[in-house]
Lab assay of single mutants.
Amino acid sequence: MAMNGTITTWFKDKGFGFIKDENGDNRYFHVIKVANPDLIKKDAAVTFEPTTNNKGLSAYAVKVVPL
């Protein structure tokens, strides 16, 4: 089920960042999981599918909501 969130941290040079989800949890995401990576920036609103990996909470099918 899709969730909403906000990008809180973005490491462009490393290709990953973190999203604060609607429950207040931080989720890892990688640029290859983003549909529109050219719009990635700190504080951008996103929708995504929540999941977990071996390191904890993460996100896939991430879409940055255009302003």
Rank of each mutant, 00 (worst) to 15 (best):
L67Y: 14
A61Q: 10
T9Q: 14
P50R: 03
Y28T: 04
V46S: 02
A61V: 06
V46F: 01
K14W: 11
H30W: 06
W10K: 00
E49C: 14
I7V: 09
T52L: 10
H30P: 06
D21P: 00
A35C: 14
F48E: 01
E49Y: 15
A59N: 01
F48Q: 01
I40C: 07
Y60V: 15
G17F: 01
V64F: 04
F48T: 00
E49R: 15
T47V: 12
E49G: 06
E22Y: 06
G56D: 04
D21R: 02
G5L: 03
T9W: 13
A61D: 14
I32G: 15
A45F: 12
V31D: 05
A44Q: 06
V62A: 01
T6F: 13
K12Q: 10
K14H: 08
V34N: 04
A44N: 04
K55P: 04
V31A: 09
D25A: 09
K33G: 14
E49M: 15
V64D: 01
D13Q: 11
G5D: 01
M1P: 13
D43C: 13
D13L: 11
Y60F: 13
A59H: 02
Y60L: 14
F29I: 03
K12A: 13
W10V: 04
I32Q: 15
P37T: 04
Y60H: 14
M3V: 06
P37G: 04
T47A: 05
I7S: 01
G56Y: 08
N36T: 08
K41L: 07
P66C: 12
A2E: 10
N53E: 07
V34P: 03
K20G: 04
N53F: 09
G56R: 12
D38K: 11
N36A: 04
S58Q: 10
T47H: 07
F48G: 00
T52K: 13
G17Y: 02
A35G: 08
H30R: 07
D25F: 09
E49K: 15
R27L: 03
A2S: 14
H30F: 06
T9H: 15
T9V: 15
D25P: 02
K12P: 15
K20L: 14
V46E: 01
D13M: 10
G5C: 03
A35I: 15
K55D: 07
L39W: 10
N23M: 10
M1V: 13
A44D: 03
V46C: 09
Y60D: 14
I7M: 01
F29M: 03
S58V: 11
D21I: 01
A45G: 07
A44S: 07
G15I: 02
N23F: 11
T8P: 01
G24F: 04
D38L: 11
T51K: 12
S58W: 07
D38V: 08
E22I: 07
A2Y: 13
N36Y: 05
M1K: 15
A44T: 05
D25Y: 08
L57A: 06
L57I: 05
V31K: 12
K42F: 06
H30S: 13
I32K: 15
V64Y: 03
N23L: 09
M3N: 04
I19Q: 00
D25W: 06
I7Y: 01
I32Y: 14
D25H: 09
D38G: 10
F11G: 01
D13S: 12
G24E: 05
K33L: 12
F16I: 05
F18D: 00
T8H: 09
A2F: 11
E22V: 08
A59L: 03
K63P: 00
T52R: 14
P66F: 13
A44L: 06
N53L: 08
K14G: 06
I32L: 15
K63L: 11
F16E: 04
M3Q: 04
A45Y: 12
G56L: 08
K20C: 11
I40Q: 00
A61K: 13
G56V: 07
D43W: 15
T51C: 13
T52I: 11
A2P: 14
V34S: 05
M1E: 10
F18C: 06
V62S: 00
F16T: 03
S58T: 11
K41G: 06
G5S: 02
